[in-house]
Design a protein around this nucleic acid. Sequence first.
RNA 1: CGGGGAGUGGCGCAGUCCGGCAGCGCAUCUGCUUUGGGAGCAGAGGGUCGCAGGUUCAAAUCCUGUCUCCCCGACCA
Length: 454
Amino acid sequence: CMIIRPNGFALWENMRHALDQMFKDTGHENAYFPLFIPKSFLSKEAQHVEGFAKECAVITHSRLKSVNGGVEVDPDSALEEELIVRPTSETIIWDAYRNWIQSYRDLPILINQWANVVRWEMRTRLFLRTMEFLWQEGHTAHATKEEAEVETRQMLDVYKTFAEDYMAMPVKTGIKTESERFAGAVDTYCIEALMQDGKALQAGTSHFLGQNFAKAFDVKFQDKDGEHKYVWATSWGVSTRLIGGLIMTHSDDQGLVLPPKLAPTQVVIVPIWKNDEQRNEVMEYADPIYKELKDAGVSVKMDDRDNYKPGWKFAEHEVQGTPLRIAVGPRDVQNNNLELARRDTLDKEIVNRDGIAGRVKENLKAIQSDLYKSALERTEQQTRTVGSFSQFKEEIEKGGFIYAHWDGTAETEAKIKEETKATIRCIPLESDDAGSCMVTGEPSKQKVLFARSY
RNA sequence: CGGGGAGUGGCGCAGUCCGGCAGCGCAUCUGCUUUGGGAGCAGAGGGUCGCAGGUUCAAAUCCUGUCUCCCCGACCA
């Protein structure tokens, strides 16, 4: 069961808000589709059924009845057709699109939905693989293949930008191999991030669906030339898994480290006093600081709880990852100072109170870019190229990304996975020299990116 | 489904081998002292030891059955 408590949800809301704005900036609108999908919908696209059949929650009955003080499923309430709790919404959305699309004038349809989905996983892993998760799923319909391909790539770029500029999490982009591809897609593009333990995390996917769903759901439009044609489709999504990625990218032994652009609270002020007299004096000094920061657009919280000591508060805000901490006590009031502490470096400095808003904003900016820089440095340090399979086997034990040549066959891919637990995270989009497969020696057009992954 | 581990106050655990008053740390409550890095002292409350049988004068402990949870693997955003 998934419970997201207020602090965690505030983080998700910030992520959601930033992404939502990026979707709108690229012409998308939000909508909402049903949670329950008739079972027959799932079976319309062959690959799609295959991919999701094994992990669906199925609704078979509509009511309970009381029996001896308890309740039992009422056998008389069996549904004529079972309902599936959506594992993803392609089918129910394309069923709706059939009715929405007749002419080329109805295209493109650029829709996103924020929703929960359920996948009945054999084994769950906190944040990374939960039975229920929150996500957004974009579903677009286009008149031409080219336009759909451009959309697929555009949304991949949106995800990369979000990961790097907001989460401060560097990512590699590329295309999935056939075996790793989304069930029902022609091509799956992805962003892959490297966690601090050297394992890769698939952080977002953008699928070019071709005409697979249009054909399965019979979605055609009449084009300018009078011809009836199947619609071209894309879908793309990121989930609460990003929270896991964020944690595993930046956090340290003291707790979370949150990038300022996403932190629910960017700055916390901890006032310090010994008695009521000092309390009044310190609060009189601290309140205008709070107001000044708030007016400057900083997300700031005054932690003036009297039932916790300063040291306790410091530790708690470190655990929660608040990027900047301001401590003010009687000494600072005397000297017109305050103590500024960075969560990422744990550095503390005494600074003058004047011009504090500007200084805080500079610091937040610096933390944001330093987090990205150090994550990038770590990722690059753990990324290398190998030429032989024996070298690959040795290197993969150290974790990280490895570029190597592969002959393009599923057999070789499976053999590598079998022997090393490493998978092909993606086939990079950048051009690269040809070579020969590290396993079979067969020709390879380019190197691909390997890692052990979550 | 296969392999391993665990169920004892709210949380984390010891006690089980070798049966004998149910304990410890944290948290909670009260009082006083404290407050610039997770406070100190004194006191208090809180547990049918997962569940059901059995053995015994006596069971958290031994026996039988059963349920649940966690970890590793197969599946996956």
